[in-house]
Write a protein that binds this DNA or RNA. Structure first.
Lengths: 295, 295
DNA sequence: ATCGCCTAATAGGCGAT
DNA sequence: ATCGCCTAATAGGCGAT
């Protein structure tokens, strides 16, 4: 199985990769379309997103005896880890709502984002000449009021690269990238291809859309307790071919990726980087979109 | 938020808990219905489940440079960690397919299973007199050919308990259970309530259905490589009220839960247990159902 | 057959400078 | 503002007895 279809996949891959390097505006059009679609679906269902997110606080009597434990360096103790609330009531909900407009297939992969699936739609045909499918990679990146910075932190399995695939018997690999900060820098080893070719020949460029729910801690402002949703930020990170080939965003904006949150004990191949919202906005304003929750 | 609605929730909870203790057959009917529904959905879409699961092997050229690393004690090196393949192409796919028959809401909770959501259906009204909703908890428990034992391993956030909730200002808690083996025994601290009451008064008993995909390793039998799907086992573990109150399965079958996979360094409250398939089958044959994949 | 030894990958709060 | 220190929770392969 590992070695079946390699010739076909390699041939289609090489053609498709060259095509998107020659026609980056088509990849960008797919990214813009899906970024805006994501924002629209959330806005159109915002009450439901907020209601299901906030239910977690009201359900306190059912989990308060078994809260997720504090973690990290010197937790202050007034915050409840809220990761799973966003993953379900934002991430999985979005996937479910997308299902009513697109054809979804849960293609198996041994690693990658929380939510990732093949999305098929005739809509894509007006945006590019090659395919009616994309592989949508999506992760939820929750933060509280003390950590709502202008970035997200990405691991290697959440970043696509230049996708070198030389011969059918070899495997695809990505060249290293740099995370360049003002005081420090390190390498980043992206682990995701810029596009997948399925057994049936489907061409599926990878689209990376991150959902960043920001919650409040009511205890900071009142005597009430709870961690209600404050806003949802929708972040679209460019495909690896756009980052490295054409238009080669990483060369124009060398600090688009900057140092991440890992300590020195982390293996170099696994180190995360931060992605700058300011520079993403310089690329396109639609790459950082905020949805405020009415209070 | 943590303290709003507590009086209403406590009152409804107390009533519903007493009702299901008096009428355990209604909880069991919900479990049986959803176990069989799960099996039916998988069987009716088996080709798609198998195809998307197995695509992971064919996509080898795209991930082989970045495989998940071997882990655990003395890995032999011929196996690729395959956890995520099952979670997406079995677990998330099942959720998506359920969505076409039921109303789903992704209710926020700070902890719990991989897939969990409120399921609403008029179908439930013929099975019990109290509610048209359940909270479905589902985890994928993948194993390969060298680990396909007659059990699954559950963590505390995957087990519901007796659900004691004394007064509105206190929190619900569960009494400890025992995991009793032939040579050893330990305590289990279930962390999930047997039922949730939402802000709007919805009564949602917790149903636990586990999906256990079993994959082959072709390299064990041939010169080929790949980890294709061999079968899917659908396991329905009783709700905490059935385990501890009426019929009190844990007293009739004290080894239903037996020692898990954790070592001695694990905090006692977090220790996992194994659940015996033999004893589950003694309760009801539909609690362990196998779906074989044609080859 | 029993049971527990053992480690990769994920995530984000928050301190230190 | 920058960046990295720091830990909970999850999972299942496979060895030891």
């Amino acid at each position: 199985m590992f070695n079946e279809h390699r010739e076909m996949m390699h041939e289609v891959y090489t053609h498709a990769r060259n095509y998107f390097i020659q026609n980056p505006q088509e990849l960008i059009a797919l990214e813009e379309y899906l970024a805006n679609k994501t924002v629209n679906i959330i806005r159109q269902n915002l009450e439901e997103f907020v209601s299901d997110y906030n239910e977690a606080s009201f359900l306190n009597p059912f989990w308060a005896s078994y809260p997720p434990e504090d973690r990290g360096r010197k937790p202050r103790g007034d915050q409840v880890p809220w990761i799973e609330v966003g993953e379900h009531s934002i991430g999985h909900k979005l996937t479910r709502l997308m299902n009513s407009e697109y054809t979804i297939r849960e293609i198996g992969l041994p690693s990658g984002s929380d939510d990732r699936f093949l999305l098929k739609s005739n809509d894509f045909e007006s945006l590019n000449k090659l395919t009616n499918s994309v592989m949508l990679f999506s992760d939820v990146k929750s933060v509280g009021p003390r950590d709502d910075a202008e970035h997200i932190v990405l691991s290697p399995y959440q970043i696509s690269g230049d996708g070198i695939w030389n011969t059918p018997s070899e495997n695809m690999y990505n060249n290293k990238m740099q995370a360049i900060g003002k005081k420090s820098a390190h390498e980043v080893w992206p682990a995701i291809p810029p596009l997948y070719i399925l057994q049936n020949g489907t061409i599926a460029p990878v689209i990376h859309i991150y959902l960043k729910p920001v919650y409040n801690m009511l205890s900071l402002e009142s005597s009430k307790h709870g961690q209600p949703l404050k806003k949802i930020r929708v972040i679209t990170v460019p495909n690896g071919l756009l980052l490295t080939q054409n238009p080669n965003y990483l060369s124009t904006y060398p600090s688009l990726f900057y140092p991440g949150k890992d300590d020195k004990s982390k293996a170099p191949r696994k180190v995360r980087c931060r992605v700058s919202f300011d520079l993403l906005r310089s690329l396109h304003t639609w790459r950082v979109q905020d949805i405020e929750v009415e209070i």
